[in-house]
Simulated assay, not measured.
Amino acid sequence: MNVVLYDYWRSTASYRVRIALSLAGIAYRSVPVDLLAGAQSTPEHIARNPQGFVPVLEIDGLRLTQSLAIIEYLDETRNVGLLPEHPAERVRVRCLSQVLAADTHPICNPSVVRQAQLYVAQDARDEMRIRWMQHFIRRGLAAFEAMLDSPATGQFCHGDAPTIADLCLIPQIYNAERWGADWSDLPRIRAIAATAEEIEAFQAARPEAVKPAT
């Protein structure tokens, strides 16, 4: 059965799932959903996901939404090893993941920022957006760095193999670079990012690697 991923090349949530698919060795067909053109709000996409978000993954006769749920499904059905076996270790990985996926990424979602921009003058909106992104991305990464101060941290966020936490971290670093949020003083994150950059699955999932041709 064909695996189909409806995504947008710059979507943080889609980026997480692309890494997971690559780590699992799952070939898939990408169907771009152009968020800038409003394709997420078309009746066709709303039928796939009533929230109008990406990604949407069609696999095993299922249609799945929500990136962390998708990643856990892939982990449980393909034995990717993205969650530790011990409950205490598993909860640590989930806590790290949600710092970025539940508390940082949503407030930087374009729909949230656009709504916030309505409360500032038109000529100040572009600057406000940049400052907003820098503030919340930096805040999330700084908290994440502090949580990495643990003997459980290894070459990756938890131990020496990628977990869901790393799949959340690397896309957020991409966002930090995109918006100019400073993370130069976060040594644990920098070390993990350097390690991940050497892994083909992370390289193949990068936005520049999947950006549709224009």
Rank of each mutant, 00 (worst) to 15 (best):
V3S: 09
V4C: 06
Y6D: 04
Y6L: 01
R10L: 13
S11H: 04
T12Q: 10
A13R: 02
S14I: 03
Y15R: 07
Y15N: 11
V17C: 10
V17K: 03
R18K: 11
A24R: 02
A27V: 09
S30T: 11
S30F: 00
V31Q: 10
P32F: 02
V33R: 02
V33T: 10
D34H: 15
L35G: 02
L35N: 01
L36K: 14
L36S: 14
A39P: 01
Q40W: 00
E44I: 05
E44L: 09
H45P: 02
A47Q: 12
N49C: 10
N49D: 12
Q51A: 11
G52L: 06
F53Y: 11
V54H: 02
P55V: 07
L57P: 02
G61W: 08
L64M: 15
T65R: 12
S67A: 14
A69C: 06
I71E: 01
E72R: 11
L74W: 05
T77Y: 03
V80I: 15
G81P: 08
L83S: 09
P84C: 04
E89L: 13
V91F: 10
V91T: 14
R94I: 13
Q98G: 03
L100E: 02
A101M: 12
A101T: 10
T104A: 03
H105K: 03
H105E: 12
I107A: 07
C108D: 11
N109A: 12
N109Q: 09
V112P: 10
A121W: 00
Q122I: 08
D126P: 03
D126W: 05
E127W: 00
E127K: 11
M128I: 00
W132V: 09
M133N: 14
H135Y: 11
R138E: 14
A142N: 12
A143H: 12
A146W: 04
M147A: 14
D149G: 07
A152K: 11
Q155R: 15
C157A: 14
G159N: 08
G159D: 03
D160W: 06
A161S: 15
D166F: 04
C168Y: 00
I170V: 15
I170T: 15
I173K: 01
Y174C: 08
Y174N: 11
W179P: 07
G180H: 12
A181F: 01
A181M: 11
D185P: 02
L186S: 07
R188M: 06
A191G: 06
A194M: 06
A201E: 07
A205F: 01
A205R: 01
E208P: 00
P212Y: 02
A213Y: 03
